[in-house]
Structures are given as structure tokens and as C-alpha cells.
Amino acid sequence: MLKLQYISKYYNPGTVNEMCLFDNFSLTVQNQEFVSVVGSNGSGKTSMLNIICGSIPIDEGKITINDVDITNMPEFKRQKRIGRVYQNPAMGTCPTMTILENMALADNKGKPFNLRRGTNKSKIDFYRESLRMLNLGLEDKMEVSVGSLSGGQRQAMALVMSTMTPIEFLILDEHTAALDPKTAELIMELTDRVVREKKLTTIMVTHNLRYAVEYGNRLMMMHQGNIIIDKAGTIKSNVQIDDIIEKFNEISIECGN
């Protein structure tokens, strides 16, 4: 269970540009929940993910994962329990390293990075199998450097890599936004499958309202640092895309967009 309690976050404190993003923001995510988060630009979606991951500090509040306080834990330590896929497909892979090396790197998460061989030969078949389920033919290009792959292929790899080792949380930060519609669809289906198979607790930020409605078992809409819609379980499954669009238009008009 992930708990954000009474989080306050100011940008540019003490200057004329001071902006309060979160004021007493709280959120609880139950284990194995798949939360889709939508909201306009500047509503705090990505900042919320950054706060959970520790990429940006908070001014007040407390963050716990399964009752362990991680508020002051550095970002890299939190990542032991968290897998994260970014909007930019380049963020999740190493371009100059081969597919095989990238897989080996991801597989070693949580284990020591010592002077043993980087790639364990006996695991190559396992990596191939993991890539085969993507249906992108990557399993036959193990020696190709990832930099020569397309954005969609890289994002698919990033997803496989970030969920390869046991993690408790999956953070998806608009991970289909930079992809063409068809590839985005593929990555989304893949995400859903991985989340179900590995029973991951997931928070997905998306601008695609249809994905938000179709996938996951809890839907949140954020606006100016607040949660203005939060529907879970059967109520969530009855939410129609039109309901969301209506509310979305409401907040957009408010902002003058």
C-alpha cells in the first residue's frame, strides 16, 4: 500500500514566481490497484509521480510504502521497489549497448554490480522468451544496439526491462504519449498483460482518456494539485468516456484553454 499524506510542494519558494502545486495532498493506493490518472497540463500528475519516486523533494508531508516511511529515502534507493517507464522512450534503455546487454543490465537490478561477467550466458534464452512476447522480432536481434531501434520498440523494451525483476510498484509516466497510435495500442495491451501477470500495483498517468477509462480499476482526474474525480471498482467500470470528457472540458474552460 502506497500512502501520500498531507503533501505540500511549492515551486520557486520565496520568489515572485512562487507557486503552490500541492497543499495538503493525500492519496492512498491499495496493493494491486491499477490507477489511471488524467488531468490537464500543470495539474500535478507528473509531479505526483516524481514525488513518489523521489525525483523531486517535498516541503511537507509523509510518503510510505507498506508502512515503511520513504519520505527521506534517496531516489535511487526507492527504485528497488519501483519500476518506472517514462514518456521518452530513450529514458528506459541504453542506446549504445546491445539488446542483450540492456536485458542483462535490467536483470541485475537489486543485485550487486560487481566484477562478474555482465551477461550471464545461461539466461539468454530467458531474455529471448521475454522479448518474444512483444511480437516485435527483437529476440532475433540480441546483438543489435538499442539506439538503432524505433521509439516503439525501445518503449516495449523499457517496459519489459522495468518489470523484469520483482518490484512492488509500476509507475507509467505518459508512456504511450510519444508513440504512434498503433504502437501506443500495442504498448498499452502489453502493459495491461504485464500488470495482470505480475500482479503489480500501478499508477499510470495518461493524456489518452480512452486508455484511462478502458484500463485499470481506478480512475483519477487531477486539477490544480487536487483530485477532482476518484472512482474505483465497479463504479469505475461503469464510467463512460463521455462523463470524463465533460468534466475535462469543465476544468479546461476554467483555465481558459
Binding site: F76, Q79, M91, C94, M97, L105, A106, N108, K109, G110
Partner: peptide, 15 residues
């Protein structure tokens, strides 16, 4: 090699 290539991934690997 990863840190020069893409710093973010090193953090993602909990290092």
C-alpha cells in the same frame, strides 16, 4: 557504460 549513455537508467536500477 550505462551512466554515460543514460543516467536515468542507473537510478532506475536502484544504483
Amino acid at each position: 557504460r550505462a551512466v554515460g549513455d543514460n543516467e536515468t537508467i542507473v537510478t532506475s536500477l536502484a544504483k
